[in-house]
Amino acid sequence: MSARPGRDPSTDCTDPTSRRVVATAFALISSRYVLARHQIGAAILDREGGLHLGLHVDAMVGRAAVCAEAVALGVARMATSAPLVLVAAVRHPKPDERTPARLVPPCGLCRELLLDHAPDLAAVIGGPLGPRTAALAELLPHKYVGTKWAPTGP
Rank of each mutant, 00 (worst) to 15 (best):
S81L: 14
V75F: 05
C110F: 03
P128R: 15
V124S: 02
A137L: 13
A101R: 04
F26S: 00
G153Y: 11
G62I: 12
G62Y: 09
R19L: 07
A137G: 15
A150K: 11
D58K: 14
M60K: 10
A137Q: 12
V104K: 00
P93Q: 01
F26Y: 15
S2P: 09
I29L: 09
W149A: 14
H117Y: 13
C110E: 00
Y144Q: 08
S81P: 08
K148V: 14
P151F: 03
H52N: 05
V75D: 12
D116G: 13
A122D: 12
A137N: 07
A36M: 08
A25M: 08
L28Y: 07
A3K: 11
K94A: 15
G126Q: 10
G126V: 10
A79T: 08
L73W: 00
P128I: 12
P100L: 05
L84R: 01
R20E: 10
R77D: 03
L140P: 02
P16H: 06
L28G: 06
L51Y: 05
A82I: 11
E48C: 11
L121R: 02
L103H: 00
T11A: 14
L84W: 02
P9R: 00
P100A: 13
S18M: 06
S10R: 05
V22I: 07
V34C: 09
V66C: 08
A76V: 04
M60G: 15
A70Y: 05
A36L: 12
L45Y: 03
P83F: 07
P83W: 03
V57S: 14
K148I: 14
A43K: 02
R77F: 04
P131F: 09
D96Q: 09
